[in-house]
Structures are given as structure tokens and as C-alpha cells.
Design a protein around this nucleic acid. Structure first.
Lengths: 217, 217
DNA sequence: GGCAATATCCCCCTTTCGGGGGATTGAGGA
DNA sequence: TCCTCAATCCCCCGAAAGGGGGATATTGCC
């Protein structure tokens, strides 16, 4: 995918703990197929220097002095040929996990990961995988399983009201909804008033926000 | 987590290919810590028998005669103490992956997975992980990266416009937005017209739908 | 039979939206 | 320097939305 097959995978470490940094660097350089090309103690100097020190994979800590590893990842993705970023952090809370992935991280490992697995993970990332610590993977998967916001709003509504709400939230005018459902304009208005009553909203937009799960984030 | 630590993990296989089924069963029974308690050739008979043949982990094929493995997983999750489900299939297209995860699958392996890894994966699932084949994991992670609906909508907008859009999508009236931002009503209207232009919408609701990611699902 | 819920339709009215035009200021880039 | 863009404000106007009232038919349940 990148470079020649025989070349070593170039790794950069962004980690503020000098000890950890050194340990990782040592581990990587001691692994066949990997080479640590640079280490940085903060996101700013990493971003500034990255042009000249191109890496294939970046091991990124989240908690850094100044700019966070997540923000750095986001910044990195806006560039021409962004390296693959793997988060390596002590925290595994949902917020940081999902924010990291949204920012563009390809993997997410906890610092408790054994060295051997860490090395495997770097290779996996490079070859198109997305290694995650066990608990992380489960949370990511679980995030798909949350009942969709739709289900909540739908609870109290009658079948017809749900149909109306769906069209309503897609921006259709009353007239258009009436035509689609082949009912009268006044009927649509009645349904909508009932919907508003049940959802405790006063406008189409509030209803839409509830329907689509607007109260998130 | 389940049973005693010394007990073997009870595995059930739902797979219509008798040969594959037998091979998996043999593999599992040959692994210390695992035991194949039952095998089914279709989802219906599995669902019917599952009460009496409780398993810890179910290896579920997707393509089954009749009901699909995904539907069976969905059905399973409605029960009292659903077993952990790991998809084991030849297909790795996004649709099936995400539908499986939404249905409640905890893991997703391709049938090309080497036996040793498969056994590991079963154990991982049992211990709270979510093993996925490399390419699957990357797709799952990538699904977070498709610039979130917000980011997309936000892309072209100026700072002020984003603020206005946020309030707009939460159902605030122009007057309320103006008061909140301490600007004039006309200014709000101007911003909104710019927002509509950029998002290519003609109403608050359409803008909200785009902002909140209404076109999903 | 009566009652509740659903779905349908009609009238009144005011408020809010959205589209069109234009203007000014200040900051920052060509 | 000039020009662009973001942000601010103003006017006119018609269409859409929302709130209030009430009505009818059908269904299913007690």
C-alpha cells in the first residue's frame, strides 16, 4: 500500500511522558519491520515537524500539554497524505473513543496493551486493519446497538402520526404531506397538532429535532 | 462473567453448510475451554430450540435458508438472557456489517479467518471483547469518520452561521436567536439566508435535517 | 349500548418564514 | 491600495405554519 513491501513501517510517537516515549521507541526499533522515525512530546511540535518527518503510522497520546491528541489527529487529516493514526492512551471513556474515531484515528489501544500486541497492532493498522483493545471494540460495537432515537419519539404516536412526522421532518409542506398520504390538508394539520401535543413541542423543527435525536451531543 | 471460571464456554453454531458446520464443531470441541453444545442448519430451528440449549456464544452465519442470521440475531436480543452472537460469514459488505451490529452482534468474522484466530475470537467475545476481521474493523471505524453530518453542514459555514444554525435547528424562532446572540432580527435573517444558500435547502426543517444527519438510515 | 381512540375534514385567526432587494463596517488577502 | 468576505442592519411582500374552535365515521373494547 505504501512504500515497498520490504521497507520498514515508519512510526512516529507523540507522547508527553518521556519515559513511555523512550520505551515505545525502543520497542518499535527492536521489532523487525518497524522503525521509529521520530518522537514528540506535544502535538504542536509534531504538527509543525510532520512535513519533513513523514511517518506511516503515528502513535498518538490523547492527554498532551496544550493541544490534545484528538485535535492533532483532526488537523492531520486535513493534510495531503495523512499518516495512519493509532490512539494509545490510558483513558477509555466513550467520549474520547468516539471523538478520536471521528477525528480520524484508525485504531485505539489502551496503554495497558502488552508490547507484543502493540507491535502487532501497528502492523495491522498499516495493512488496513483497525486494532482496538477488547473493551474499546465492544463499546464501538455497542454504539451501533443503541435503539435509534426514532424509536423514542415514535413511542406515543399512532401509525398515521408517525407517517406524518416522518414526512414533516423531511421538510415536506403540509400540502405535500396531504398529497403523499392522499388525505386532506386539514387532516394533516390535525395530526400535526396531535404530534406536537404528544412530543410537547411547538414547531416543526422541534419535532424534527426530537424525531432525529436532536438532544444528542 | 457467566458460569464459573472453570466451565467451558458453550458454543452454538448456526450454519447451513453441513461441512463447514461439522468442521467448526470439531474445531471448537478440540479447543480447551470451548464446547460446541449444538448446531443448527437454519435460523428457525435454532430460535425454536434455543430455550433448552442455552449457549454462551453463538456463531451465526448470515446467509441461511429462510430467515437470515441477522434477523435471528435481532429476535434473540429480545429474549431474557440473550447469548453473545458472533457473525461468521463470507460477506463483508457494509450493509450486512452494520445491520448485524445494529441487530446485536458482538463480533464479525469472515469465514476466511484462520481456525486459531476463530477460537481466540470466541474467547474474546465471551470476555467482553468484540473481535472483528481486520477489514471489518476498519470499516466500522471508518463509519465514524465519514465527516459527521454536523461537520458536513458546518464545512462551508462561517462561525456565526454555525451558531445560528445550531439555534435554528433547536427550534428557536428568529427573534429568540437574535436575542440569544444579541444581534438584530434582520441579521439573523441574513445569516439564515446564507445558510440556506450554502446548504441548498429552502426551509428550516431541511437545514435541521442536514445538520442533524436526517438522511441516515 | 356507550365510550375511547383513531382518522378524517372544516372554519376562524395571528405569527413566523422565506425570498427579493440593498447597505455599512472592519479585517485580511491580492 | 483595492477587493473580498464576514457580520451587521433595513424594507417589502406573499406563503407557510401554528393555535383555537368544532365535526363526522370507524373501530374495538368494556
Amino acid at each position: 500500500m505504501r512504500g515497498t513491501t520490504s521497507a520498514k513501517i515508519r512510526v512516529t510517537i507523540v507522547e508527553d511522558d518521556a519515559g513511555v516515549c523512550e520505551g515505545l521507541s525502543f520497542l518499535i526499533d527492536g521489532s523487525p519491520g518497524l522503525r521509529c522515525v521520530s518522537t514528540f512530546g506535544d502535538a504542536e511540535s509534531f504538527l509543525a515537524a510532520h512535513h519533513s518527518q513523514r511517518a506511516d503510522v503515528v502513535l498518538m497520546d490523547i492527554d498532551l500539554p496544550g493541544m490534545s491528541g484528538i485535535d492533532a489527529t483532526r488537523d492531520l487529516r486535513r493534510r495531503a497524505k495523512p499518516p495512519l493514526v493509532m490512539m494509545l492512551t490510558v483513558y477509555g471513556d466513550d467520549g474520547q473513543i468516539f471523538e478520536s474515531l471521528r477525528a480520524g484515528a484508525c485504531g485505539y489501544l489502551l496503554k495497558t496493551t502488552p508490547p507484543a500486541q502493540l507491535v502487532d497492532a501497528i502492523t495491522t493498522v498499516y495493512h488496513g486493519g483497525s486494532p482496538m483493545s477488547e473493551t474499546i471494540a465492544r463499546r464501538v460495537v455497542a454504539s451501533f446497538q443503541q435503539p435509534s432515537p426514532k424509536a423514542r419519539a415514535l413511542a406515543d404516536l399512532t401509525l398515521r402520526e408517525r407517517e406524518v412526522l416522518d414526512l414533516l421532518s423531511r421538510g415536506f409542506r403540509y400540502r405535500e404531506i396531504a398529497d403523499r398520504l392522499e388525505i386532506g390538508l386539514e387532516t394533516v394539520r390535525t395530526h400535526i397538532r396531535h404530534i406536537y401535543d404528544k412530543l410537547e413541542v411547538r414547531s416543526r423543527t422541534e419535532a424534527t429535532a426530537k424525531y432525529l435525536g436532536g438532544e444528542v451531543s
